[in-house]
Amino acid sequence: MDAPCWFETRHDGEAVLPTHRHGRGYAALVIDGQHLEACVDGAFECTPGTLLLHPAYHAHGNRFGRRGARVINMPLPDGVAPDGLRAWRVPHLDEARAMFQREPCSLAALLAQAMPCTPVELPDWQPALLQALADSELPIGALCRQLGVSLAHASRALARSHGMSPQLLRRELRWRRALSLLHGEGELSDIALRCGFSDQSHFTRVTRRYAGLPPAALRQQIKSVQDAPAAAAVC
Rank of each mutant, 00 (worst) to 15 (best):
V30M: 03
A217F: 11
R24T: 10
P127Y: 02
G184N: 06
G84W: 03
G84E: 09
C5Y: 08
I191T: 06
L110G: 07
N62R: 07
D135W: 09
H60N: 04
Y57T: 04
L181N: 02
I140E: 00
A98N: 11
C46K: 11
A15W: 07
A81P: 06
L29R: 03
L76Q: 02
C195V: 12
C235T: 00
Q113Y: 02
Q146T: 10
E45F: 13
S198F: 13
A157N: 09
F197I: 10
T19L: 13
P48V: 00
G13F: 01
R208N: 00
P229V: 04
S150N: 02
V234H: 09
S198I: 15
G84P: 02
F7C: 05
A56C: 08
G23S: 14
E14M: 14
M164C: 08
E45W: 10
S136K: 04
A152D: 01
A132M: 12
L85V: 11
D83M: 15
H22A: 09
N62Y: 15
T9H: 07
R170A: 09
A112L: 06
A56R: 08
R174K: 12
A108V: 10
G68W: 02
C117T: 10
W88L: 12
R156D: 14
A114M: 11
G212S: 02
L51S: 07
L52H: 01
E37K: 09
L218F: 02
A96Y: 10
P55A: 11
C235L: 01
R156A: 15
R177K: 06
G184H: 07
A232S: 13
V90M: 03
A211H: 06
A192V: 12
V71W: 05
E137W: 10
H202S: 13
G186Y: 13
G184E: 05
L52Q: 04
L181C: 05
H162E: 04
L193C: 14
L133I: 03
A96E: 08
